[in-house]
C-alpha cells in the first residue's frame, strides 16, 4: 500500500530510441526514456524523469485508417513518407509510428514494399521511428525481418509482441538491435508474464517498452489507467520485470461512438479532446510515449507536457 516515502527502492530502466549520426544512425535526434524513481510529476522533486514523448501515428494503407484523419489531412495520407515529414515539421511530433496496414490485405505477399516504405519513411523524417508490423502469424516473420533490416542502425521500436506471438518480432529486434513493444491486454500479470517470456529468450530489459493496451476514453480507459499506475508502482517498488518505460496508444479513440457519430462541425474537436484526455491521463499514469492520430492533438499535448515537465526538452533529464 501507499507509503509516504520519497524512495520506493525501484527505478525504471532506460530504453534508447533512434540513433543520430554520432551514434552511427541517421536520425536527427535520439531519446533515452525511463530513469524515473518516483511517481509521475512527483519525480521532479526527488529525481528526474523524462518528459513524455508524443508519437504521431501514420500508416502505409490509409483505407484502414479513420476517415476523420484522412478527410482532415487530405491527399497527404496516400504518400506515407510525406505524411511522416508532416508529422515532424507541421505537427511537431517527437516520434513517428508507422503501421504497416498494407499487410492486412488478404493474401499479402508484397514483401519488398515493406522494406521500401520503411526506408522511405526513414528518409522522410529525421525522427526516431516506431514500426508496427503485421498481425498475421503466417507473414510475421518475414515482415519483421524486412523492417528490422530496413531500419538497421536506427534503433527502431518494433511492434508488437504479444504472449501468443513474440518470437518473430523478438528475433528481428535482436538481430538488428532494435527495441520492441510488448503488448498485453490491460492486465499487470500478463504484462509481467510477457516480459519474463521475452527475457527468457534473450531480449534485454533495455530493449522493451511495455504497452499495457490503452482503451480509449470511455471504452476501457478506466482499466488501462489503473493498470498503468499499477505497473509503474510495482516497478518503483522493485519489480524489475515491470521496470520498463510504457507506451500508450488509445488507438480506438477516433472510432468510438461519441467521436464517430459527432456533429461534423465539431467532430475534429471531439476527436482531439478524446485523444488529448486519454493521452494526458496516460502520461499522468506513467506512460513515456503517448500516441495520437489527429494532427491537432500533437501541439496541445506538447504544450501541456512542456508546461508540466518544467520546460524540459524531449530526451533531456
Amino acid at each position: 500500500m501507499a507509503e509516504n516515502s520519497p524512495d520506493l527502492g525501484g527505478k525504471i530502466g532506460y530504453v534508447v530510441l533512434g540513433a543520430t549520426k554520432a551514434e552511427d544512425g541517421t536520425r536527427s535526434v535520439s531519446y533515452r526514456l525511463g530513469g524515473e524513481s518516483d511517481l509521475p510529476f512527483i519525480g521532479m522533486k526527488t529525481s528526474l524523469g523524462s518528459i513524455p514523448l508524443v508519437a504521431f501515428e501514420i500508416c502505409d494503407d490509409p483505407s484502414y485508417w479513420s476517415p476523420i484523419v484522412t478527410s482532415y489531412t487530405g491527399d497527404l495520407v496516400s504518400d506515407t513518407p510525406e505524411w511522416a515529414t508532416a508529422a515532424e515539421q507541421q505537427y511537431g511530433a517527437d516520434l513517428v509510428r508507422l503501421y504497416l496496414t498494407s499487410t492486412k490485405r488478404r493474401g499479402f505477399d508484397d514483401f519488398p514494399s515493406i522494406t521500401k516504405v520503411t526506408e522511405d519513411v526513414l528518409s522522410g523524417t529525421g525522427l526516431p521511428l516506431v514500426v508496427e508490423g503485421s498481425n498475421e502469424p503466417a507473414i510475421d516473420s518475414e515482415i519483421f525481418q524486412r523492417c528490422g533490416e530496413a531500419g538497421q542502425g536506427e534503433r527502431l521500436l518494433l511492434g508488437t509482441a504479444e504472449a501468443g506471438r513474440y518470437r518473430s518480432v523478438a528475433a528481428a529486434a535482436m538481430a538488428y538491435n532494435h527495441s520492441m513493444v510488448a503488448q498485453s491486454p490491460i492486465d499487470i500479470n500478463l504484462a509481467k508474464q510477457l516480459n519474463i517470456l521475452l527475457r527468457e529468450i534473450g531480449v534485454k530489459a533495455d530493449h522493451i517498452m511495455i504497452d499495457p493496451y490503452t482503451g480509449s476514453l470511455g471504452y476501457g480507459f478506466e482499466y488501462s489507467y489503473s493498470v498503468m499506475e499499477r505497473i509503474r508502482y510495482a516497478a518503483l517498488k522493485g519489480d524489475t520485470d515491470l521496470a520498463m518505460p510504457m507506451i500508450a496508444s488509445a488507438m480506438d479513440s477516433l472510432s468510438v461512438k461519441e467521436v464517430r457519430e459527432a456533429d461534423p462541425v465539431i467532430r475534429d474537436d471531439i476527436a482531439v479532446a478524446w485523444e488529448f484526455y486519454a493521452a494526458l491521463s496516460s502520461a499522468v499514469a506513467g506512460a513515456s510515449i503517448v500516441c495520437v492520430r489527429h494532427p491537432k492533438t500533437v501541439p496541445l499535448l506538447k504544450l501541456a507536457f512542456r508546461e508540466l515537465w518544467a520546460g524540459k526538452k524531449p530526451g533531456e533529464f
Binding site: 476514453l217 470511455g218 480507459f221 478506466e222 489507467y225 461519441e258 465539431i266 474537436d269 471531439i270 482531439v272 479532446a273 478524446w274 488529448f276 484526455y277 486519454a278 491521463s281
Partner: peptide, 14 residues
C-alpha cells in the same frame, strides 16, 4: 461541447 463530453467521460472512467 468537445471538452464537456470528454471531461464527464474521464470523470466517469476514473
Amino acid at each position: 461541447p468537445a471538452s464537456s463530453v470528454a471531461t464527464l467521460t474521464l470523470r466517469q472512467n476514473i
